[in-house]
Amino acid sequence: MKKALICGISGQDGSYLAQFLLEKGYEVFGTSRDAQGGGFRGLGLLGIKEQVTLFSMDPEDFRSVLVAVRKSQAEEIYFLAGQSSVGFSFEQPAETIQSFTIGILNVLEAVKMEGREIRVYHAGSSEAFGDTQGLAATEDTAFRPRSPYALAKASSTWLVDNYREAYNLYACTGILFNHESPLRPERFVTQKIIQSAKRIAGGSEEKLYLGRLDIQRDWGWAPEYVEAMWLTLQQEKAEDFIIASGESHSLEYFVEQAFVQLDLDWREHVVQKQELFRPTDLAVSRANPGKAREKLGWKAKSGIKEIISGMVGETVLSGL
């Protein structure tokens, strides 16, 4: 039985990855900063909390990370921990940068110290590319981060690349574009839209306040993306991969479709607020996931309307 350690198991991706690995026959270990007090809502909704061994780990404390690596004796480590909101990173830049860069650095150092065969997956982000002028990003596209979150993700990706080259570690990054599910917290704009629309459909007279609606993003279905994480660690050679659908849509289109599925006209309920505009934001995020399709045999299955439908209907399980 293979053993996997998921750092940051309480989030959306950690929960779905745990479910996926359990179905593959893995023994799964998971960490959060406070395993005793953590709610682990996602694991509970998926009905798998009792099947996972949980313990506390502070990614920014090397000793804590080393203990987790040794306790689990994992052959695969998935580093999904860190402050995950782009918007919040402008308010807490130091916390955001440290949570990613120091966290993955400690994991890489622990693996180097262990001296046994351990494969490391690091969750990168499309935000690191910055503004690509509307061109589809590939694994060779230069990083031009435009937020503290993006800077943190770019830096941690470079750390992984450096340790792979300098110390011959099996360490790689999945550069994930946006991916959603009902397990998303409401601080994320997609979930904010869905939940507001559902309340309005239920009779609420509230308004949905949003920032820019013209931005374009590549949205996927989170349960599909965790398979790509696993596939990344099953390759003979450690490489970085873009994980995306290859299709970008505007936030206005996402809003429109969410309200349409509830028989509502979004224009009657949505108000743009200047205060919600970020200091810097990407106009268009576009991806070329060709390498993942060719080498991993992975391709996103769910389109934008299916994803919105799954969130509206709160389809928690993997299939749509």
Rank of each mutant, 00 (worst) to 15 (best):
A171R: 14
F62K: 01
A123V: 08
G39V: 08
A110L: 03
E139L: 12
V189Q: 09
E60L: 02
R212N: 13
V270C: 03
Y149K: 04
F188M: 14
G39K: 12
G14S: 12
I243S: 07
A222F: 03
K71S: 06
K49H: 14
N162L: 14
K273T: 13
V270Y: 06
A287W: 07
S125R: 05
S155Q: 03
Y253D: 08
P148C: 08
D240C: 01
G220E: 09
G319H: 03
Q98R: 11
S245V: 03
S125N: 07
S181W: 14
D281N: 14
I6N: 11
K24T: 01
T232R: 07
Q234M: 07
V28A: 05
L21G: 08
L320E: 00
L276E: 10
A142D: 10
G319S: 12
V69P: 00
V270Q: 05
Y163S: 00
M57R: 05
M229G: 04
T315V: 14
E139G: 02
E186L: 14
K112T: 06
M113Q: 11
R278E: 05
M229A: 12
T173Q: 09
N168I: 02
P185T: 08
E256R: 15
Q83Y: 07
A287I: 02
E76F: 15
T138Q: 09
K295P: 02
K301L: 13
D61V: 14
L276Y: 14
Q272T: 09
A154Y: 02
